[in-house]
Design a binder for these strands. Structure first.
Lengths: 334, 334
DNA sequence: TCGACAGATGGTATCGATACCACGACTTGC
DNA sequence: GCAAGTCGTGGTATCGATACCATCTGTCGA
């Protein structure tokens, strides 16, 4: 196996110029005469040369890489955010280094340190419950950190998201104002899902005299798929048989709960309302037609990319908090 | 903003040893005395040092990075594959650099070249319709390339997957043998989705006298979500009103088609069978209960990781083809 | 005619880690 | 008591690109 890479020196020799000229021809073509540019491009094509970005990163002290950590890649919640982010970054010449923390703070700490090893120009996180280690690493590294999908009071650096608490409150209020008397908040049990915590708080805010009913499904592996929703609904109905509304912390859970309700022949929304969170693509599908909170994930990603590029251009983004809001989508299930 | 990274030299000074000793302490602790090791670890902790992997990659000519390109991150098809891959690789000390090609060969060519710029130790691809440029780049780079989710006759290097054609044939046969007389193959129209092409071929193989009915939904952006399934079913029923089975090329499509069928009050599976492909998590949910082909994505990812690690250890994996099979899951929709 | 200046190009040091070789302090065996 | 070997450690060159400064050519105005 040919494990030798073509280097810039090889290209320079083939084109009959100095390597620095090759570097310029590739990175800032305007600073090179049309004649040389052509020679270099020809040599690059012939040799199949691909610039070694790691070497470039070392000497320029700019890696042109942005590290991104999402809480989950299994569930499609963040799919559109990643897409928006990736599009925005690559338009600005930055590359995305993606990782998943699976809602585990220890895994986050590990991944942050792994990412920092690649000396990224910035970091984007959708996980916000950081361990002490993580915080120390992040502040020590002194690079822009952008938190997504929430708006902490005091972001590490900058944040792009919306108020999970308000969204949770709005959803609960909506159900209560449509005469639901015993709404339950259904979530998976995760120590460090701060978004779920905030939505739960919002639910509590809205209760006004109704009894708080919160049920957590213990996750088996660390997923959060529809299976848990089905299981969760079963447990909820056993615990509180008079439940007439289930506010699920995510669409995935809601899909599962909805399916389970139908399987049991429960009239949705007549006897039971089911709502989700996120508006993932299956949520709107006709057989489900789920009432949910829509989050414009792609917009969050795009905004994050914009901020990142600004920060890489030297702009100070410390303290920026961008609220992109949410939208309650009322469909057939409540 | 503090943009200065702590270097190995700083750690060495703090610990009162040479930098090379620090390098050894971190990478091969067994070659360092317990005493020095402790001093180094203390210094590392105090300074919050994170080794610069890019510099290490440059000097050791091994980046410990594996590039992975999947056809889509929007749809959860490859979610479990990525998880399996990531787990296997990180256990072996390798890091995953992830990208999405969105089923576009030109985008693949671009991403391959971007990835190669990071000098990965290997490449993993779920996209198999490569442009001439891509092939040249790949063979020129001379690194292990592993193709997933299919088994080309002649893989570039190695492949881990199953026979899409056989799976398509099995599904069509299953429907035909349960008295379906007019099965339609429903897919999205993409120039370069070779897996869909193979499943379609399998469908054709199975027909035996039945008229071939293949319908492609033109994608609007480049997604492949349930919306297309709903739209597709509507088009199919208009084109061939006597359709009694729809074999969808993916679960996402099938979910959409199924929902649309129910919305129209069509009896599933009585009047119309609907089947999917992949067995994503929502497929099994009770309200859907989709008949589909189960692919063990996580196993594919794990196998790929194993092969990658072997290749990085110098083993020759050229020509390896690992068939992990599939499983027809008969549920309520056909 | 000459100096000033802009544009194009090259030389050399440098980024941070590792490979390779060399060295000193021990232990071991005869 | 000494040669041979092992262990831990450090010095120096190196990986491939870029930053910085120097150089060289040619044009223009005085």
């Amino acid at each position: 196996m040919n494990r030798k890479w073509v280097t810039m020196g090889d290209v320079a020799r083939a084109a009959g110029v100095g390597k620095i000229t090759v570097s310029r021809a590739l990175r800032t073509p305007s600073k090179v005469s049309a004649d040389t540019l052509e020679k270099v491009q020809k040599a690059v094509m012939e040799l199949g040369y691909v610039r070694d970005e790691t070497a470039g990163a070392l000497s320029s002290q700019r890696s042109r890489v942005v590290g991104a950590l999402v809480s989950t890649l299994e569930q499609p919640v963040f799919a559109s955010t990643i897409r928006g982010l990736e599009e925005g970054l690559s338009a600005g010449g930055l590359q995305l280094l993606l990782g998943s923390t699976r809602y585990q703070p220890e895994k986050e700490a590990l991944m942050v340190s792994t990412l920092l090893g690649r000396r990224p120009d910035a970091l984007v996180l959708t996980s916000s419950d950081h361990t002490e280690d993580t915080r120390r690493l992040l502040s020590g590294a002194g690079l822009p950190v952008i938190e997504l999908w929430e708006l902490p009071e005091v972001p590490i650096h900058a944040a792009v998201g919306f108020s999970n608490r308000q969204a949770g409150r709005d959803m609960a209020r909506h159900l209560i104002s449509s005469e639901r008397r015993a709404p339950v908040f259904l979530r998976t049990e995760r120590a460090s899902d701060t978004r779920a915590d905030m939505r739960e708080k919002g639910y509590l805010d809205a209760l006004e005299g109704h009894a708080p009913r919160i049920h957590s499904v213990p996750p088996r592996e660390d997923q959060g798929g529809p299976d848990y929703g089905a299981e969760g609904l079963a447990q909820v109905l056993q615990r509180w048989p008079d439940t007439d509304a289930v506010i699920c912390v995510s669409d995935a859970l809601a899909v599962g709960a909805l399916c389970e309700a139908r399987r049991r022949g429960i009239d949705v929304p007549g006897a039971l309302a089911v709502t989700g969170f996120g508006d993932i693509d299956v949520a709107g599908a006709a057989a489900l037609d789920l009432t949910t909170v829509r989050i414009d994930g792609a917009a969050i990603g795009r905004e994050a990319a914009r901020l990142t590029l600004a920060a890489c251009d030297g702009e100070d983004i410390k303290g920026t908090r961008i609220d992109l809001g949410y939208q309650l989508i009322r469909r057939a299930t409540g």
